[in-house]
Design a protein around this nucleic acid. Structure first.
Length: 173
DNA sequence: TAAGTGATCTCT
DNA sequence: GAGATCACTTAA
C-alpha cells in the first residue's frame, strides 16, 4: 500500500494520470470516521488550452487552486447545489486537474461529495493524512480492458474538438 | 425534460 | 450592482 503524494501528481500528462487513478482508493478520515472507496470514474481537465477546464478563462480567485502545486484538492460549487471534487495535477503554474466523478458505491460527482461530507473547506488543501482525505494505491490494478474511455460529460460548451476528446475513464462493473 | 440553485465572472 | 453562465440532481 502506498499513499500518493505531490510527486505522484506532478506529471504533465494529466490524461494518463486520470486513467491511472481508476482502481485506486480515496480515503476519507473526517470526524474520526474513516472510509475507503475505490475510484471508478475520473475526467481529465488539462491545461490553459482545454476550453472545458476552468482555467482556460484565465487565472481568477476561484481557479487559483488549479495553478497551485499538484496533489491538492480543488473543490467548488456547481449549479448552486453541488460541490465537485478535483485533484490538482501538473507543475505549479500549470492549471490541470482530475475530476473524481464516481466511487465504488456512489455515482455522480455531486452525490459523491455529499456522501463523503466534502465541501469547499477542502479547497486548496493538500491530499494528506493531516487534512483527512488522500489517495492510496493498494496494489490491485484493474484489468486494462475493464477501463472504458469516453468523452467528458456536460462540456458541450467547450466546442466539438474539446468536448469529444476521450478524457473520461470509467471502470466497468 | 425541465427547473432549481447560488457562486463567480463580465460587463456597467 | 445586474445579468449570464454553469464539470448536476431529482422528480415527472
Amino acid at each position: 500500500m502506498k499513499r500518493l503524494v505531490e510527486a505522484d501528481f506532478c506529471s504533465r500528462n494529466t490524461v494518463a494520470l486520470a486513467r491511472s487513478l481508476i482502481g485506486k482508493h480515496l480515503v476519507v478520515d473526517t470526524d474520526g470516521e474513516r472510509g475507503a472507496f475505490v475510484i471508478t470514474e475520473t475526467e481529465a481537465y488539462d491545461g490553459p488550452e482545454d476550453l472545458a477546464c476552468h482555467a482556460s478563462k484565465g487565472r481568477t480567485k476561484r481557479t487559483e487552486t488549479l495553478f497551485g502545486p499538484p496533489g491538492c484538492w480543488y473543490v467548488y460549487l456547481c449549479y448552486g447545489v453541488h460541490e465537485m471534487l478535483n485533484l490538482v495535477t501538473g507543475p505549479v503554474d500549470y492549471p490541470a486537474a482530475i475530476l473524481i466523478r464516481g466511487l465504488g458505491e456512489v455515482s455522480g460527482p455531486g452525490r459523491l461529495t455529499k456522501h463523503l461530507g466534502i465541501d469547499r473547506r477542502f479547497n486548496a488543501r493538500t491530499a494528506s493524512v493531516e487534512t483527512g482525505m488522500w489517495v492510496e494505491d493498494r496494489g490491485s490494478r484493474p484489468n486494462e480492458a475493464d477501463i472504458e474511455t469516453t468523452p467528458r460529460i456536460g462540456v458541450d460548451y467547450a466546442g466539438d474538438d474539446w468536448a469529444n476528446r476521450p478524457y473520461r475513464f470509467v471502470l466497468k462493473a
